[in-house]
């Protein structure tokens, strides 16, 4: 497990790609809802839940790699992004529940647009830049 993790970045695989795609799909769905003045629907909440599961799995992969002796290139930024990433779907969930208007959908859309960026930043801060 250690050698496999050492060869590849733990946050740069099928799971990361799936998280990005899922997040963008939920964002698109929420955007349509926001534009149509619709409050967050079941699809958005289920999407957030599945996204959170994927991100938690991604976190476990990263922690396993760290436990196996690997280190991210920029640890401070990497773990900062990781903590932020895991908090994002629950944050969107809670605020969207509080806001049963089009703006609730806008919150889900915004968070799901930012999440892929954070995943990419995770990948960038894992790789050792000039180290």
């Amino acid at each position: 497990m250690t050698s496999a993790a050492a060869a590849n970045s733990p946050v740069d695989g099928i799971l990361a790609t799936a998280s990005i795609v899922l997040s963008l799909l939920v964002a698109a769905w929420a955007l349509v809802a926001a534009v149509r003045h619709r409050p967050p629907d079941r699809v958005q909440f289920v999407g957030l839940a599945v996204l959170e599961l994927a991100l938690l799995a991604l976190t476990v992969l990263a922690l396993v790699a760290v436990g196996g002796g690997d280190r991210p290139g920029e640890p401070g930024a990497f773990f900062g992004y990781l903590v932020t990433l895991v908090c994002m779907p629950p944050l969107a969930w809670v605020l969207a529940r509080m806001e049963p208007t089009r703006w609730g959908s806008a919150i889900v859309c915004a968070v799901c647009l930012v999440a892929p960026v954070v995943v990419v930043r995770l990948q960038q801060t894992w790789e050792v830049l000039g180290g």
């Binding site: 930024a77 900062g80 994002m88 944050l91 605020l95 919150i107 915004a110």
Partner: peptide, 26 residues
């Protein structure tokens, strides 16, 4: 704190988490 304001609060909370975790770890 309602409507677009809630969206703004969401982004502020996001940055609060991002900056806190980063600063805390560093």
């Amino acid at each position: 704190n309602t409507g677009p304001g809630r969206l703004l609060i969401a982004v502020y909370l996001l940055f609060a988490i991002a900056a806190t975790s980063r600063a805390g770890l560093q």
